[in-house]
């Protein structure tokens, strides 16, 4: 009883932290800790119990269709479908979903503006804007191309994000292992994923302890402190690597890193609905060609 209570409190705390991170992000523009927020959403998602292979294959097919069919209607269908899956089926709050999407959206807008709008010394094009030293110009065709490209990229990204927001990294690595990605890469991915969190923990502790001793009081000190923390982090990670190797050996590690993987059921229903969605996309693509 105590156990489950403690656990739920802990989970609430973690989600508060995640929530806090999100609100924080609106202010500073997604710079720190977004990775761990995504990781947390993946564990909290209601789609987590779905078969990971299905999710990975499904989102990849969607991604390929979205790019391959090159059709704005397909793109819109993908965007709506993936948002439906992530937010309504997965139980992620809309604010959190949009917050995660904000990073790619920024890149998409910045990237596509360069395609839609051009610069010239003469007043050409359907619309132009005089800037004093030249003209920004564009046309309806160009703007349409820009909007379609945006939709396409956005659809492709939302398919990938559906996967990352519903499948923890360890399960994605498991799918890659089944797809016969070389063992070395799989082992590295597993270890790196685990150690990112340890490294962040150690770094946070060091930074806090430096901060409490006025290590970040001005710019010059901050630079020195950052250097010291980074070099200390290297020494600590070497030591930790040793400690881990010892612990792994103590449990019979003999050169092969093999983990137990949970087999998740693949209900027929998912397969049918997934296939139906894919076929729907193809038909939609052909019909509106």
């Amino acid at each position: 009883m105590e156990n489950s209570l403690g656990k739920s409190i802990n989970f609430i705390r973690t989600s508060e932290k995640a929530e806090h991170q999100v609100t924080h992000h609106h202010k500073i523009g997604h710079k720190h800790g977004e990775g761990s927020a995504i990781d947390f959403y993946a564990y909290a998602s209601k789609l987590r119990c779905w078969n990971p292979t299905f999710k990975v294959v499904f989102s990849f097919l969607t991604l390929l269709l979205c790019i391959g069919l090159n059709n704005p209607f397909v793109s819109i269908a993908v965007i709506i479908g993936m948002a439906y899956l992530t937010v309504l089926k997965g139980g992620l709050s809309l604010a959190a979903y949009i917050s995660v999407l904000m990073i790619p959206i920024t890149f998409i807008i910045m990237g596509t503006i360069a395609i839609g709008v051009d610069f010239s010394s003469q007043p050409i094009g359907q619309f132009n804007l005089f800037l004093g030293f030249g003209y920004l110009f564009t046309s309806v065709d160009k703007l349409q191309e820009m909007a379609f490209l945006m939709l396409k990229v956005f659809g492709a990204i939302s398919a990938m994000i559906m996967m990352t927001l519903s499948t923890p990294s360890s399960e994605i690595i498991g799918v890659l292992r089944k797809a016969h990605v070389p063992k070395l890469i799989i082992e590295l991915m597993n270890l790196i994923y685990r150690y990112i969190f340890i490294l962040m923990d150690v770094f946070n502790n060091m930074r806090n302890s430096a901060d409490s001793r006025q290590g970040y009081c001005d710019f010059k000190t901050s630079c020195t402190t950052f250097g010291s923390v980074a070099s200390n982090l290297l020494v600590v990670s070497l030591k930790k690597a040793n400690a881990y190797y010892t612990a792994m050996e103590a449990r019979g590690y003999e050169g092969d890193l093999i983990f137990l993987e949970d087999e998740k059921k693949m209900p027929m229903r998912h397969l049918v609905i997934g296939a139906a969605f894919i076929i729907f996309l193809i038909i939609l693509g052909i019909m509106t060609h």
Partner: peptide, 8 residues
Amino acid sequence: DNQIIAST
């Protein structure tokens, strides 16, 4: 934290 190696 020096012993736990896997991610679940």
